[in-house]
């Protein structure tokens, strides 16, 4: 038996290690969130910003911005639309990332690192530059739009613009978020035990049955992790619809940005932000809850309970 000496770190040591990140989160995440929650109950200022918190000796807090959100259905519709875009992005990312991740997981060790590097390579250039690059790729004079419209012309269809459309927004959303799906899926698939697939085949399962009954269920924790990493940022994104979308493609992120920077209605912008956060957290919570149900068993045959 191996005896491991367990060092109990001193209280001071623990605080020294965990203190700075904790302080960072308090100052730059918890406090701003609190300020935003407070702002959502305040009155907008006459020329933007916020009206004074204490007016004529009275504390000015009200639910008017919330009332507005729930009374005007246009905002719920935009939420629903954003949810739909985020969901579609997640589904496309799963569909595209799965074969890629399993290809990488099954390739020899020599190529694996190279392929992973290629997956994260886009991160080396600026996010906005990559979006602007899509403007060129999808532009009316680019080969893609010309080819598409030439094909449409054969069928007697009028030319369509690719840029400034829902299509452009979705393509770019998928493009930007794909690595966040590939990496957790790869991390999961790479750990799968080949013996399980051999056993399934030996027990009579064909290639599709082996995938559907063994590989896919065992990969679900990776799918859920990837889905959360894709869905949550895609839900609140504003840069992509701003640059590549038409006027119809505004998402909730754009509306929030508009409330703060253009309309300058900070309380209402705060309400929208809070609703976005709550919905995103609810989704992440749901994903974690579903994943736990499926995580009751470890991913290796010999694994023991964690």
């Amino acid at each position: 038996m191996i005896v491991v000496a367990v060092h109990t770190p001193s209280r001071l040591g623990r605080w020294l290690v965990s203190g700075p990140p904790l302080a960072y989160l308090i100052v730059f995440f918890a406090l701003p969130s609190l300020i935003m929650v407070l702002a959502s109950f305040r009155t907008p200022g006459e020329f933007g910003g916020l009206a004074p918190l204490i007016e004529e000796g009275k504390l000015d807090l009200n639910l008017e911005s919330y009332a507005r959100f729930f009374s005007e259905s246009v905002y719920a519709q935009i939420f629903l639309k954003s949810f739909g875009y985020a969901l579609l992005t997640t589904l496309f990312c799963i569909t595209l990332a799965y074969p890629l991740a399993s290809l990488i997981a099954r390739s020899s060790r020599r190529y694996r690192d190279l392929l992973l590097l290629l997956v994260i390579l886009p991160f080396w250039s600026n996010f906005l530059i990559r979006i602007y690059a899509w403007m060129i790729l999808l532009g009316p004079n680019a080969a893609l739009a010309r080819t598409v419209n030439r094909v449409l012309a054969w069928f007697g269809h009028d030319p369509v613009p690719l840029l400034f459309s829902a299509f452009a927004v979705l393509v770019c959303l998928v493009y930007v978020h794909l690595p966040f799906m590939v990496l957790p899926l790869y991390a999961n698939l790479e750990k799968h035990d080949q013996a399980l697939l051999d056993a399934a085949q030996d027990l009579g399962a064909n290639a599709w049955q082996r995938f559907w009954r063994i590989t896919f269920p065992l990969s679900l924790p990776g799918v859920y992790a990837g889905a959360a990493l894709v869905f949550i940022p895609a839900f609140g994104i504003f840069a992509i619809p701003d640059i590549l979308g038409g006027p119809e493609d505004s998402l909730i992120g754009n509306v929030i940005k508009q409330q703060f920077l253009e309309t300058r209605d900070w309380p209402f912008g705060s309400v929208l932000s809070i609703v976005l956060t709550v919905v995103a957290l609810a989704f992440a919570g749901l994903a974690a809850w579903v994943a736990r149900g499926n995580l009751r068993t470890p991913s290796s045959a010999r694994g023991s309970r964690a």
């Binding site: 035990d193 013996a195 399980l196 051999d198 056993a199 399934a200 085949q201 030996d202 027990l203 009579g204 399962a205 064909n206 009954r213 063994i214 269920p217 065992l218 499926n294 068993t297 470890p298 991913s299 290796s300 045959a301 010999r302 694994g303």
Partner: peptide
């Protein structure tokens, strides 16, 4: 999958899920 034989693997290869 089409041979009427079955194999018992050293690691058992039980499906964990």
């Amino acid at each position: 999958e089409r041979r009427p034989m079955r194999m018992v693997f050293q690691s058992y290869a039980l499906f964990p899920h």
